[in-house]
Design a protein around this nucleic acid. Structure first.
Lengths: 278, 278
DNA sequence: GGCAATGGTTCATATAATGAACCCTTGGAT
DNA sequence: ATCCAAGGGTTCATTATATGAACCATTGCC
C-alpha cells in the first residue's frame, strides 16, 4: 500500500463543485444520507459538509427529514428537470451522452425512436478514429427484424408486440421470407438475457452492430441506441467490448431522455456497482 | 428613488447559493441564457458569473449549446429528479409545500388523490392560528360531487369523465338525488374559468372550502388540494383570498409531485409573472 | 474600417470557505 | 441511574478560495 490515496494536488475543486458533488452520493440504493454518512463518503470535514448540505437545502436541492434529520434529494430538482424536459428537444438531450460514447468507442453511434414498426432517426454521432468506418445513412429506414436496434426493442417489450411485428410485412427486408416464429423467439430470449442485441452483416455486408433499448418514464422501451462497426475490425473480442461499453452507458442514455431503466435490466448492464457506499 | 437597491448587508450569500441561484433564472419562458443575459439578470461580475456557469456545467446542471454558446439546464437534473421520484414517497413530496401553505393561511390544507371516483387521503396539514378551525377527518371519504376537491378534479378533466361520474351512484351523498346534468355542467364550466372550485356548507354545515386540481406528468388532473375553513370566518373576501393563495401555490404543488401544469391553467393561476426577465 | 456586443481569461486583492475543537442530544450498554 | 459512543450541529482563528477591474478575441453591423 504505497500512498494513502491523498489526491495528488489536482486543480483545486471549486466550492460549487464540491457541494454539487454531494448530490451524486444520493442514489436509488442510498436515497437518504445523514451528515455523518456524507462526511464518511467524502472524507471532508464535518463542518464543511454541513455547510454545503445546508446551502443545498436552502436552495431546494436537498430536503431534510424533520424526524430522522437525514437528507434526501429536494423538490427543486423536480422543478428544474421539468423545465428541461419541456424546453430542450429530445435530440439535444441525448446529444452529450452519445457524443461522448462515440468518442470513446471511435465508431458510429445511433439513437432512433420506434414509431409504429419504423425506426426513426433521433441523433447520431461519428467520431472516426479509424480510416475505415461505417458511414451514416439516415434514410435507410431499415425494417425492425433486419437491425440490432429493432431486435433490441422487441426483446425488451411485452410479448404481444412480437405477434404484431411478425404479422406486419414491413418489419422484414423486402424479398426476404417472413421470419420463423420459434427462431425469433429464441433469439429475443437470448438478447434479453445478454442485455444487448447484435447483428453481423445482416443489413449490409461488412457492417455489424450492437444495440440496446432506451426506456421511457414508465420503463417501457421506446427507442434504441446502437453502435455500428466494420465486421472485420478488431477480431473476436470486438462485439463483446463494444456491447460492454454500450451497456455501461445504457442508464445514462435512458435517463438523459427522462426515462427509467427497469431494475433487472440495470443489473444486467452494471453488474457490480454500488459497493463503495457502506 | 431613495437608495439604489444596493442590498443592505444581508448575511453574505454562500458561493454555493449564488451559483445555484443561477439555475432559477432558467424557466419555460427563458430556457436558454447567454453569459451576458445571466450577468445582466444577476448584476454580478461577468467573470464570477462565468466561473459559476462553468462549474454548474461541469457538474451536469447546465449544458452549453456548442453553436450559440448559450446555456441551458443540464442532464444531471433529470438524473437526480428521477432518483427523487423513485425513492421519495408521494406524501413526502407535497409535505413541504403543503406545510408552508397551511402556515401561511392558518387553515386546514388537504391533498387527496383521485382513485376511481374516490378521494383518498395523501397528506394534510393544519397550522391553527385560530381557536375555531376545521378539524381533519381523514375517513369521511366524501363523494366527488359533495366536495370542492371533487368538483375541481372533474372541472379540469376530459368531458367523458363527467358522464361516468354522474352515472355512478357513489359520487353523491347517500340520500341525495342525482345531480342535475345541466346544473353541474354550468358549475364545472365556471370552475374551469375561475381556476378553482368552492363549496359552502355542502358537506358539513359551517365548513367551506376552496380546491384546485393537481396535474401529473402528462398534465392530466390526478389529485386535488383544498383549503377548508369555517364558513363564518372573515366575511365576504375570505373565499377569494384563500383561493388566490391556493392558486399561487398550484404550480408548486403540482411540480412537487412531478407533474406539469397546463399553460392555460398556469395563466389563470399566476396572471402577471415573468415580467422581470427582459 | 471602426464600433458595440458577446464570450471568455488574468491576476492582485479581499472575502468567504475551511477544520480542529467544542456543545448538545439520543440510544444503547453496564 | 450512569457511562460511553455516535450523531447532528456550531464557533472562530487561519488561509485558501472567490472575486472583479482590466484585458483579449470573435462576431455582426453600420
Amino acid at each position: 500500500m504505497q500512498g494513502d490515496c491523498r489526491c495528488v494536488k489536482l486543480d483545486p475543486m471549486s466550492t460549487i463543485a464540491k457541494a454539487l458533488g454531494l448530490l451524486d452520493l444520493f442514489s436509488d440504493a442510498h436515497p437518504r444520507l445523514g451528515l455523518s454518512d456524507v462526511q464518511r463518503l467524502t472524507g471532508r470535514d464535518k463542518a464543511t459538509v454541513h455547510r454545503h448540505l445546508v446551502a443545498l437545502e436552502r436552495a431546494g436541492f436537498l430536503e431534510q427529514d424533520a424526524a430522522t434529520r437525514a437528507y434526501r434529494l429536494g423538490p427543486a430538482l423536480t422543478r428544474l428537470s421539468g423545465i428541461r424536459a419541456r424546453t430542450v428537444p429530445e435530440v439535444e438531450m441525448v446529444r452529450s451522452v452519445i457524443d461522448v460514447l462515440s468518442r470513446d468507442v471511435g465508431e458510429l453511434v445511433h439513437v432512433s425512436r420506434v414509431q409504429g414498426f419504423d425506426l426513426v432517426h433521433v441523433h447520431h454521432a461519428e467520431e472516426h478514429d479509424h480510416p475505415v468506418r461505417v458511414a451514416f445513412d439516415a434514410y435507410g429506414l431499415p425494417p425492425l427484424f433486419a437491425t440490432a436496434s429493432g431486435k433490441a426493442y422487441l426483446a425488451f417489450s411485452p410479448g404481444g408486440l412480437l405477434e404484431l411485428a411478425i404479422a406486419d410485412p414491413r418489419t422484414c427486408l423486402p424479398g426476404t421470407p417472413a421470419p420463423d416464429r420459434r427462431e425469433i423467439e429464441a433469439e429475443l430470449k437470448q438478447i434479453a438475457s445478454l442485455g444487448y442485441a447484435r447483428n453481423r452483416d445482416a443489413l449490409r455486408l461488412g457492417v455489424s452492430s450492437v444495440a440496446i433499448p432506451v426506456f421511457d418514464g414508465a420503463s417501457r422501451a421506446f427507442a434504441t441506441c446502437s453502435i455500428a462497426y466494420p465486421t472485420g475490425r478488431g477480431g473476436k473480442g470486438t462485439e463483446a467490448r463494444l456491447a460492454r461499453l454500450l451497456m455501461q452507458r445504457g442508464r445514462d442514455i435512458t435517463e438523459a431522455m427522462g426515462g427509467v431503466v427497469p431494475p433487472h435490466i440495470l443489473d444486467l448492464w452494471t453488474p457490480s456497482r454500488e459497493r463503495a457506499a457502506s
